[in-house]
Amino acid sequence: MSEAASGVRWYGSRRPGASEWVLEHSHGGDHDPYRWLARAVADSATKVLDLACGTGALTRRLVRPGRMTVGVDLSGANLEAALEAGPGTYLRADVGYLPFRDNSFDAVVTSLGLGVVADRGRFLEEAARVLRPGGVFAALSPSLRPFNAEDLRISSQLAGYLRVTPQLPGLSEFRAKKMLADAGLKKVEDSRSRYHYEVASREDAEFLLAGLRQAPDRARSSAALEFLAARAEAEPFRVPLPMRRIVALK
């Protein structure tokens, strides 16, 4: 999405796909956050819409034989990268003004869109409008929990360099129930899960910092990179990236 057009608060690096890379390479047990989100979509769903799809990492996960899966994003650069990554159906459009009829989709999902758009009310109203009665809305957003003691220590150290919480782009821990209800959606799940991104090299650290919510200035990002790279040289380690999954029904 375009920061100017859609009122994005923050969105990680301007490098297309940076945040998606971090999500794809973060793991909790045997899965990554995209797999967790995709599980909210029933196999029987034949029409699925991915809002603020970015470079299509989630969209590609949702493709099934006999299913129409459409990714929507306002960024031309993101959609070009999505098409280069593999076949898919993508549309350039503002997620606040979707060019689809009412009740068009069995499921509407978004990996980070709910947390980064400025007008979440409008975002949800449009998602609910194009969702059929009984359809599923599912979203991911960063979370501030759950953390264990080691996670808190590493996160605090990195935050000391960045001067912002080391998380993927988007607001965290906002109240979802009323916001969903105002759009005509009923919340049925609001859960958190622990994920970690492993830093084993300077390159890993560069990708991580490109995908995270950005530091207020380049000097702080550079200091954080040196901290991560030096630690990785001594021993690979994991940076915590807890996530939140919200699921609602129309």
Results as ranks from 00 to 15, higher is better:
4 A>S: 14
5 A>C: 05
5 A>Y: 14
8 V>D: 01
9 R>S: 13
10 W>R: 07
15 R>S: 11
15 R>T: 15
17 G>C: 06
19 S>R: 11
20 E>P: 02
22 V>P: 06
24 E>N: 15
30 D>A: 13
35 R>N: 09
35 R>D: 11
38 A>H: 10
39 R>H: 15
39 R>W: 00
41 V>C: 08
41 V>A: 06
43 D>N: 13
45 A>W: 11
47 K>H: 15
48 V>T: 07
49 L>K: 04
49 L>D: 07
50 D>L: 02
51 L>I: 08
52 A>N: 06
53 C>D: 02
53 C>P: 04
55 T>Y: 08
56 G>A: 01
56 G>R: 04
56 G>D: 04
58 L>P: 02
61 R>P: 12
62 L>F: 07
62 L>M: 03
63 V>K: 11
63 V>A: 03
64 R>L: 04
67 R>Y: 14
69 T>C: 10
71 G>E: 03
71 G>D: 09
71 G>K: 07
78 N>I: 03
82 A>N: 03
82 A>M: 02
82 A>Q: 13
83 L>T: 06
86 G>Y: 02
86 G>L: 01
87 P>L: 02
89 T>G: 08
99 P>L: 06
101 R>A: 09
103 N>C: 09
103 N>I: 03
103 N>V: 07
103 N>K: 12
103 N>S: 13
106 D>C: 15
106 D>P: 03
108 V>P: 08
108 V>Q: 05
112 L>W: 00
113 G>K: 01
113 G>S: 00
114 L>I: 14
115 G>R: 00
115 G>A: 02
120 R>S: 00
121 G>C: 07
123 F>A: 07
126 E>V: 01
131 L>I: 13
132 R>D: 09
133 P>G: 15
134 G>P: 07
135 G>R: 00
136 V>R: 07
137 F>P: 15
137 F>C: 04
138 A>V: 05
142 P>L: 02
144 L>V: 05
145 R>E: 11
147 F>H: 15
148 N>C: 04
149 A>P: 02
152 L>C: 10
153 R>V: 13
153 R>W: 14
157 Q>M: 10
159 A>N: 12
165 T>E: 14
168 L>A: 01
169 P>G: 11
170 G>K: 02
176 A>R: 10
177 K>I: 04
177 K>Q: 11
178 K>I: 10
179 M>L: 15
179 M>Q: 15
182 D>Q: 10
183 A>S: 04
184 G>L: 05
186 K>I: 10
187 K>D: 05
188 V>W: 04
188 V>L: 00
191 S>F: 10
191 S>Q: 12
192 R>A: 15
192 R>T: 12
197 Y>A: 11
198 E>P: 01
198 E>Q: 09
199 V>L: 08
201 S>F: 09
202 R>M: 04
203 E>K: 06
205 A>P: 10
206 E>T: 13
207 F>W: 13
210 A>H: 04
211 G>Y: 00
211 G>M: 00
213 R>Q: 13
214 Q>K: 12
215 A>K: 09
215 A>F: 03
216 P>A: 06
219 A>N: 09
220 R>S: 08
220 R>A: 05
220 R>M: 05
221 S>T: 15
222 S>L: 15
222 S>A: 14
225 L>C: 09
225 L>N: 05
225 L>P: 14
228 L>D: 09
232 A>L: 05
237 F>G: 08
238 R>I: 05
239 V>M: 14
239 V>T: 06
242 P>C: 06
244 R>L: 01
245 R>S: 07
246 I>F: 01
246 I>C: 01
